[in-house]
Amino acid sequence: MAKRVETYLIDDITEVRGDSVRTRTLVIDGERYEVDLGDDSYGQLCTAIAPYLEAGRKAKTSRKANPRRHTLAAEASAADVRAWAKRRRIKVPTRGRIPSPIRQQYEAAHSPAA
């Protein structure tokens, strides 16, 4: 028997599935956010923040600030985090993005200092 698995993104604002939907990354006050947006929603976001971007300046970033976070997050799959959370009786969505607090708990539990 053949098995076919399809993965697609749904716009987090309009809840519409489409080929133009991509995961966008935002950093505000040092916190990193990811949101899945189609072209229309992304255009609305860009229009809304344009005055702030024009008034601001680009800041230099350093990947050395927290190198472990990037490597651990890349290694931990959503399935791994879900399984870990379920074993600890932490409510976790069965589909979609893992909430940041749960991923942070997972990372803290799996850090070398833990």
Rank of each mutant, 00 (worst) to 15 (best):
V16G: 10
L53D: 09
T94W: 09
R95W: 11
R82I: 04
E15G: 01
L72T: 00
V92H: 05
T14N: 04
A76L: 12
E6W: 06
M1Q: 11
P101H: 07
W84L: 09
A59Q: 10
D36H: 08
H110P: 12
C46H: 03
I98P: 06
D29M: 07
K91W: 05
A79I: 08
G18I: 02
R4F: 13
A78D: 14
L45A: 05
R63W: 11
A78I: 02
R32V: 15
A108W: 00
N66W: 07
R82C: 07
I90L: 12
D12E: 12
A59L: 06
I10A: 14
D12A: 11
G30M: 04
R4A: 14
D19S: 12
V35L: 12
E31L: 00
P101Q: 06
L72Y: 08
L26D: 05
G30S: 02
E107R: 02
G18C: 04
A108E: 13
A50D: 15
I49W: 04
A78N: 11
R4N: 15
I90P: 08
R88L: 15
C46F: 07
A113Q: 10
A50N: 08
A55V: 02
H110S: 07
D11G: 04
I49K: 05
R17F: 10
S100T: 14
T94I: 13
V27S: 10
V16P: 01
D19Y: 07
T61W: 02
P67L: 00
I28G: 00
P112L: 02
A83I: 10
K64M: 02
V35G: 05
S62Q: 06
V5D: 12
A59I: 03
E54S: 04
P112S: 01
I98Y: 12
S77A: 03
S100D: 15
A73S: 11
S100E: 14
V92C: 10
R32Q: 15
I28A: 05
A50C: 00
A113H: 07
V81L: 08
R68F: 11
L9P: 04
V81W: 02
K58A: 13
R69T: 08
P93T: 11
R32S: 15
R87T: 12
S20W: 03
S100I: 06
K86H: 06
E75S: 04
A59T: 02
Q105A: 15
A113S: 12
V21F: 04
Q104A: 15
D80P: 03
I49A: 05
D12W: 01
I102T: 07
V35P: 06
R69D: 13
H70F: 04
E15R: 02
R87V: 07
K64S: 13
T23L: 07
V35T: 08
T94V: 13
D19M: 01
I102V: 13
K58S: 14
G56Q: 05
R89I: 01
G30A: 02
I13H: 05
L9Y: 14
K3C: 11
